[in-house]
Nucleic acid binder design. Structure first.
Length: 871
RNA sequence: GCCCGAGUGGCGGAAUGGUAGACGCAAGCGACUCAAACUCGCUCGGAGCAAUCCAUGCCGGUUCGAGUCCGGCCUCGGGCACCA
């Protein structure tokens, strides 16, 4: 078990040459890193240049929330982006690699409530701190383009676009439910609702309706879905998640009749994706927020009590779905559209969502597990619509839900009994029948809902509209933008300070000049992050975007961030770019803003835990644990691969790592071993190993000229290893497999170290090493590049090319399998023909022994790869 | 609950359907050293004297050949629309 990271244990790596060293006789990151950072600054190496003569490359990491401290996840994210940026720059691209801050959001308000102070001061202070922590990493960022989304200059442009989108009909208002804390009298975010209670007050959270602003993302549902096909450089899993999220379905839309219904509710609209089961439902159910439920609860206390119970639950789908399924029989009956004499009981159920479909369902227990659980719980009948081929067994407690393409035997449906067809076929036939008889219509439906952007909070982009008694809702005049957040606010009371700020809230109507009231809701922070990448192309333009700059720099060629953003952020951005295009703020080519996407894994670390007298977990910092024990000798329990979190005390601070080992070590480690898309476990021993390796590379470079004449006959072998490394490192970077690039560099370093080739050849190999390692450990690369007489900055040297002639091997070692298991091998010329190989294989000692004079059933020769003898 | 992933030595991982374990960590042995650290060299999935056998989360299937493809599970992680 690795011990804790002991900073005092940092190995001392020295060159053997001169013990009475000058400053340059050992690898000393504290000396070389600031030196090269200053050199890059002086050369303006990372300024993005709009150069029409060069192809451009835009690489972007998801910008951070300014929490105040960078963590290893940031280091991993930005290092990956930096590798790509530096590599592409070496390949001759004009690179844009910017950085900014996703600066609005709840934590700033929470800090103001808990510690006093102003969200603005807290946020800008955090930005300054984090930037100071990031600078020593040596990232090739063009800091001249930096901005924060809370800069009025940024959010004012966002307000201008909001007004344009409002006028284009892409924005509207409607009622929607929020989590309401009845004690604090405030709206809560889903994460502030813990087991159905407010996180501060502990009060039971209620669902409450408010009128809120929405973006019409559903207008683009089909377009957002079909365009996913074109996102070929996105991870397949993200494309699949987005497709499922949009959730296009084709189904049957129909109406149940409602007997003895309250006035206006004689018909109950339903949508079902399974029309083939229309003879299988044994109940219908509506959401507690359904208008019919609301009508019923007015004069039925039992219904009112049940609906209240359903509403006493947060708004999150996960909470609703995971909760115990509850229902109440309204006593009303609904009638089947195809046969009005067939009546079903109408229930109110807590798992029916008002937001999805019509807020009402048919319950077909035999073929839906949730409906079956509900039916069993409340003693409702179960009717088998179809059965598996060759079985007549009725459904028990497991619903029968075959693939739609599977053939089943329909026993109770609109066609003849015992018809054996697929569910898809039955659905198609039923749909056609319902349409023909006027019982219902085929309808395409999406799961995607419109994007609610209203937040009842201060620290966000103000929604630039005014409510006027005479004119209604009126957008602010563009010349009055930005609508700035007032600074004189306090957070001593719960709720939104904008709501109780008289001089800010009260204003004149831009249309009639009469008395108006500002909208006090601010925008969801996902709006801020839906276009920042476009703003980076012209961060100080007087309009949201600058057409010439957009035309040159868009789209983002490589976007890198966490998988947790696979759906919301990326889908909202895709929509927002379409809305920007529709309002003239983006060119058509930018409606899909991210050409390629890469989703990285987390950085994890072991947790060290003991238990107190009462058996409760006590966590310990890595620096307090040595060889699995605390200072007093108590053994700790080690939990591997846990997400870093302050409460578990398993956080490693990048600042400490950089201070003690240097940025290059942090960068090298974070790229080593684990593939970028997977989680990486930070270990102290791994960090030390990274540091040792960089020292070894430095020493190899320092020793090139001091190890005698060497043996020139070994030069060719070393140069071959160099070209192999060029090919492998390049392939690793291109394929986002930086761990393989790292492995290839280890292999090259080992080859140089073990070789007795001439100093000339070693110099060549080490200069290539400098270039190949530069994207990952740029400071060390510059240092050895200059030591080895490379010209200029390695950051500005062109990427080396592998000579294909140096990559071919003339002879291959061919494994020989017998019945698929390796038993022997032979060395043959690379392009020897099959028959020749077969002849040699059959003469092989092991093969002869196994065959014992017989003939093989089959000999499979895969040229250059393998031979399999089947006996 | 629903959607999406991931599971390979003591550890991180490598492997166009073709030699399972590249590269590295840890460990062990040796060299250097008064000694240690650093550095360098060697060994290193398990069982067995060996021939061999067993091994890629579990169970089945396709194939001359499966870590890789298909079906069914298990465990862990991400998302579920107001965390960012």
């Amino acid at each position: 078990m690795p011990g804790a990271l002991d900073l005092a244990r940092r190995p001392c790596i020295t060159a053997p040459a001169d013990p009475n060293e000058g400053p340059m006789s050992r690898y000393d990151p504290a000396d070389i890193e600031p030196k090269w950072q200053a050199a890059w600054d002086a050369a303006e190496s990372f300024r993005a240049r709009h150069d029409p003569a060069k192809p451009k490359y835009y690489v972007l990491e998801m910008f951070p929330y300014p929490s105040g401290r960078i963590h290893m996840g940031h280091v991993r994210n930005y290092t990956m982006g930096d590798v790509v940026a530096r590599y592409k720059s070496s390949c001759g691209f004009s690179v844009l690699h910017p950085m900014g801050w996703d600066a609005f959001g709840m934590p700033a308000e929470n800090a103001a409530m808990e510690r006093g102070g102003h969200p603005k001061d807290w946020t800008y202070g955090n930005i300054a701190d984090m930037k100071a922590q990031m600078k020593p990493l040596g990232l090739s960022i063009d800091w001249s383009r930096e901005f924060a989304t809370c800069d009025p200059e940024y959010y004012g442009q966002q307000q201008a676009m909001f007004i344009d989108m409002l006028e284009a009909g892409l924005v509207y208002r409607k009622a929607a439910v929020v989590n309401w804390d009845p004690v604090d009298m405030t709206v809560l975010a889903n994460e502030q609702v813990i087991e159905g209670k407010g996180w501060r007050s502990g009060a039971e959270v209620e669902r409450r309706e408010l009128t809120q602003w929405f973006f019409k993302i559903t207008d683009y549902a089909d377009e957002l879905l079909s365009a996913i096909d074109g996102l070929e450089a996105w991870p397949e899993k993200v494309r699949l998640m987005q497709r499922n999220w949009i959730g296009k379905s084709k189904g049957l839309s129909f109406e149940f009749g409602v007997k003895n219904a309250p006035a206006g509710f004689e018909k109950l609209p339903i949508y079902t994706t399974r029309p083939d089961t229309m003879w299988g439902p044994t109940f219908a159910a509506i959401a507690a927020d359904h208008p019919l439920a609301k009508a019923l609860e007015k004069d039925n206390p039992e219904v009112a009590a049940f609906c209240a119970k359903c509403r006493a639950m947060g708004t999150s789908e996960a909470a609703i779905e995971a909760a115990e399924k509850l229902g109440l029989d309204t006593g009303l009956k609904v009638t089947h559209p195809a046969d009005p004499s067939l009546e079903l009981p109408l229930w109110i159920a807590n798992f029916v969502l008002m937001d999805y479909g019509t807020g009402a369902i048919i319950g077909c227990p035999a073929h839906d597990q949730r409906d079956l659980d509900f039916a069993r719980k409340y003693g409702l009948p179960v009717i088998d619509v179809f059965k598996p081929l060759g079985s007549d067994e009725a459904v028990g407690n497991t619903a029968f839900v075959p693939q739609k393409t599977e053939k089943v035997r329909y026993v109770h449906w609109h066609g003849p009994a015992d018809t054996e067809i697929t569910c898809q076929e039955a659905m198609d036939r039923t749909l056609a029948l319902y349409e023909k008889n006027g019982w219902g219509t085929a309808q395409v439906q999406y799961r995607l809902r419109d994007w609610g952007i209203s937040r009842q909070r201060y620290w966000g982009c103000p929604i630039p509209v005014i409510h006027c008694e005479k004119c209604g809702v009126v957008p602010e005049k563009k010349e009055n933008l930005p609508v700035r957040l007032p600074d004189d606010v306090s957070f001593d009371l719960p709720g939104n300070p904008l709501d109780r700020h008289p001089t800010w809230r009260d204003c004149t109507c831009p249309s009639c000049g009469g008395k108006g009231r500002r909208e006090t809701d601010t925008m969801d922070t996902f709006v801020d992050s839906s276009w920042y990448f476009a703003r980076f192309t012209a961060p100080h333009a007087a309009t949201p975007t600058d057409p010439a700059e957009c035309d040159y720099w868009m789209n983002v060629d490589q976007y890198i961030g966490g998988i947790e953003h696979a759906i919301l952020h990326l889908l909202y951005s895709r929509f927002f770019c379409r809305a920007m295009k529709a309002t003239g703020h983006l060119p058509a080519k930018a409606i899909e803003p991210f050409n390629a996407l890469f989703t990285q894994g987390m950085v994890t670390h072991e947790i060290y835990m003991t238990r107190d007298a009462r058996g409760r977990a006590v966590y310990h910092l890595p620096e307090d644990v040595t060889d699995g024990k605390l200072a007093d000798g108590t053994a700790v329990e080690v939990i591997p691969s846990a997400k870093m979190s302050k409460s578990k005390k398993n956080v490693v601070d990048p600042v400490d790592i950089v201070k003690n080992f240097g940025a290059d070590t942090a960068r090298w480690f974070i790229l080593s071993d684990s593939p970028p898309e997977r989680d990486v476990e930070w270990t102290a021993s791994g960090a030390e190993a990274a540091y040792k390796f960089l020292g070894r590379v430095w020493r190899l470079a320092a020793e090139v000229d001091s190890r005698g004449a060497g043996d020139a006959s070994q030069d060719q072998a070393l140069l071959k290893a160099m070209h192999r490394a060029i090919a492998d490192v390049t392939a690793g970077i291109e394929g986002f497999a930086f761990n393989k690039s790292v492995a290839a560099l280890y292999t090259l370093a080992n080859a140089v170290q073990r070789s007795d080739a001439s100093a000339t050849a070693k110099g060549t190999a080490m200069r290539a090493t400098a270039q190949l390692i530069a994207p990952m450990t740029p400071h060390l690369a510059e240092e050895i590049w200059s030591m080895l007489g490379g010209s200029g900055l390695v950051a500005e040297a062109p990427w080396p090319k592998a000579d294909p002639a140096m990559l071919v091997e003339d002879e291959v070692l061919l494994p020989i399998q017998i019945n698929g298991k390796k038993r022997s091998e032979i060395a043959v010329p690379k392009d020897m023909d099959k028959a020749e190989v077969e002849k040699l294989v059959l003469a092989d000692e092991t093969v002869v022994k196994v065959l014992a004079g017989g003939t093989p059933k089959k000999v499979i020769v895969v040229p250059g790869r393998i031979v399999n003898v089947v006996v």
